[in-house]
Amino acid sequence: MGNRVSYQRRRAHLQLPIAGETLPFRIALGLDVAWAPFLLGLVATTISAIYPAYRAAKLEIASALRFV
């Protein structure tokens, strides 16, 4: 009967010693970070403008000028 070598034990082979360190709390500031939030805000604003714009475009001149 052979020795049963567990998966966990074999996984231990994968580990190499690494330099211990305290991690810095940093914020990445590149353009690759900025585009998604910027685009999300722009798209949300643009989509929300469609309904009022549609209502304004559909307005009949006579009914609009009734208020004058």
């Binding site: 805000g41 722009l42 604003t45 403008a49 009022p52 714009a53 304004a56 307005l59």
Partner: peptide
């Protein structure tokens, strides 16, 4: 007219997006 209102939304989105970034 549609373009006028939509442009307001787009401009608002552009300025606030830039300000936010």
């Amino acid at each position: 007219v549609f373009g006028m209102f939509l442009s307001e939304g787009v401009l608002l989105g552009l300025f606030s997006g830039l300000l936010g970034v």
